[in-house]
Amino acid sequence: MPGGALVPGASGLAVAMLVGAAFIAPAAAVVPAPQPLWNAAQDPVLLLMIFGTAMFASVIPYSAELMALRNLPQQVFSVLMSMEPAIAAIAGWALLNQETGPIRWVAICLLMTASVGITLTTAQSGSSKQQDEGEEPVPVPLPE
């Protein structure tokens, strides 16, 4: 079964987000803050910012990853996922003026190299194994 195919559509993601919110909401109500949670719920600008952050930081990226996981080969998806730290570092530098530092760039490059390496070695060993056994590779059907 391809990754992400256990629950059809985005309902699995919706349930995961609700479970996450159910776990964090009690902590948000108990943790002392400059303004109580119920006062923040009465500020429409703050509610809009909270909703926007939830959409742009969680729902949209996770939905895109889920669609990619279902439609791309697993090897391609894993390499693309290993590029996320580099994209985040570049976005942090460009948007927030954050310094990443040479050690972090080396770590990011090693992570991407390891991902590409394991993908290539797995693909080569898998294809030679199928040829040795005389089996034809079975294509994974795409969801409709």
Rank of each mutant, 00 (worst) to 15 (best):
E136F: 04
A68W: 00
V19M: 06
F77H: 08
T53K: 13
S11H: 09
P32E: 15
I60C: 03
T53S: 14
E84P: 00
L111V: 04
M112E: 08
W38E: 15
E135A: 08
Q74H: 06
L47V: 06
T53C: 09
V138T: 10
F23E: 01
P26E: 05
P2N: 14
S63R: 08
L95P: 01
E136S: 12
A89N: 02
D43I: 04
I118W: 00
P61N: 08
A54L: 14
M49C: 10
D43H: 04
S115Q: 08
Q98K: 15
L111R: 01
L95M: 15
A91G: 04
V140Y: 01
L18W: 04
Q35K: 10
A114Q: 05
G12M: 10
M81D: 05
F23D: 00
T122A: 13
G20W: 01
G4Y: 01
Q35L: 13
V76W: 05
P141Q: 11
V15F: 08
W38Y: 12
M83Q: 05
I50L: 15
L37N: 02
A5K: 03
W93D: 03
T113L: 15
S78E: 11
A89C: 07
S82P: 05
E136W: 06
P139W: 09
I60M: 14
A10T: 10
I103N: 11
A57P: 01
L69F: 00
M1A: 14
S128C: 01
G117L: 05
F77D: 04
A86C: 10
K129R: 11
P61Q: 08
A88I: 06
S115G: 07
S58I: 11
F51T: 13
A5L: 09
A91Y: 10
L96R: 15
P143L: 04
W38H: 15
R104D: 12
I118Q: 04
E99S: 12
A22Q: 07
P61D: 07
V31P: 00
